[in-house]
């Protein structure tokens, strides 16, 4: 198991390295410079600035220098914010995005599993069709539409929840729901399919033949086996929710990393582009790693070299 984890970590580092390289190279293809008033600068002044920040050197040299600094924990300063270290921004903003994403995932997963199990248990009934209709709607409509609707109805009209901000727990309700609807829909769909599949397995008949009550069969033999494939969906879904929340962050003016990311690309803020991408990539890679480990915990068959025949 330790060897497996070490190997996985090696691959993760490799993936991360490739992401950095590709991002760096494609970022250099962006037109323009990071300097805000470049139109007012004379070519000489511009060259001077480029030279000062080392941007006039060949891309491979810049790339190697970036890597060197990166290894030493220096991600550079933000051009937009007077060369203030980008890590300052990340420490400030990333936890907010992460919190929003995780809250939405928790809410979405719980309701998704619940709806999926119910639909799977009572398949081909009104309950099943109702749940699946909700799922299709939740799945097809983007989260920012829900965000706008929720904001208008509960924020503006009913004044139950604040329309913007993040500091108070009440602030979390609307953005979390907006993001969670899609998660619920996706998880419910998968969970239903898996439940239907699992409940038709032979070992469910074995459990029935033991005389167990149907509730016990669903709880002990059904859900756990149905959850296994769900875990694989959850990893990418988490990454998608955390990284995809930038529109929601904008709608509810949440000071997360999503807004920062968009801004940095628009203004050619190179270190910031790199840093935000690295956070996203790192997050994605780590989630998938965690999912693989979880997979082994839930399904003993794929527990790596854990005893056996």
């Amino acid at each position: 198991m330790a060897y497996y984890i070490l190997k996985r970590i090696g691959y993760m580092l490799l993936t991360f390295f490739i992401v950095i390289t590709l991002t760096f190279l494609s970022m250099k293809l962006l037109p323009g410079t990071p300097f805000k008033q470049q139109n007012r600068l004379t070519p000489e002044q511009l060259n001077q600035l480029m030279h000062y920040y080392g941007l006039d050197q060949p891309v491979p040299v810049q790339y190697v220098r970036y890597l060197w600094n990166f290894i030493h924990g220096d991600l550079g300063g933000s051009f937009q914010y007077g060369m203030q270290p980008v890590t300052d921004f990340l420490w400030q903003r990333f936890p907010v995005s992460l919190q929003l994403g995780i809250e939405a995932m928790i809410v979405g997963t719980i309701f998704g599993i619940l709806f999926g199990v119910i639909a799977g248990m009572y398949r081909s009934t009104t309950l099943d069709w109702g749940t699946m209709a909700f799922s299709v709607v939740g799945f097809s409509i983007p989260s920012f539409i829900f965000a706008a609707i929720l904001q208008y109805v509960f924020g503006v009209q009913l004044r139950l929840f604040p329309v913007a901000g993040w500091n108070d727990p009440w602030n979390h309700v609307l953005p979390v729901i907006s993001l969670a609807i899609g998660v619920t829909a996706e998880v419910a769909r998968f969970m239903r399919t898996e439940m239907v599949e699992v409940l038709s397995q032979d070992y469910i008949v074995t459990a029935e033949a033991k005389g167990l009550a149907s509730s016990a069969i669903v709880m002990k033999h059904g859900i756990r086996n149905a959850l296994i494939p769900i875990v694989t969906v959850l990893g990418p879904l988490t990454a998608a929710v955390v990284t995809g929340s930038l529109v929601i962050e904008n709608i509810f003016t949440i000071p997360g990393i999503g807004t920062q990311f968009v801004e940095s690309v628009v203004t050619n803020d190179y270190p910031m582009i790199m840093a935000t991408t690295e956070v996203y990539a790192g997050l994605y890679i780590v989630t998938i790693f965690i999912v693989d480990i979880l997979y082994g915990v839930i399904d003993p068959r794929i527990r790596v070299s854990g005893g056996g025949k």
Binding site: V205, A209, R224, N225
Partner: peptide, 20 residues
């Protein structure tokens, strides 16, 4: 079921819950 009348099945490869 299971107490008075029990049953064993055709395919032992699928008759047991793989995660228990």
């Amino acid at each position: 079921r299971g107490k008075e009348i029990s049953m064993i099945f055709q395919d032992p490869m699928t008759a047991l819950n793989p995660t228990m």
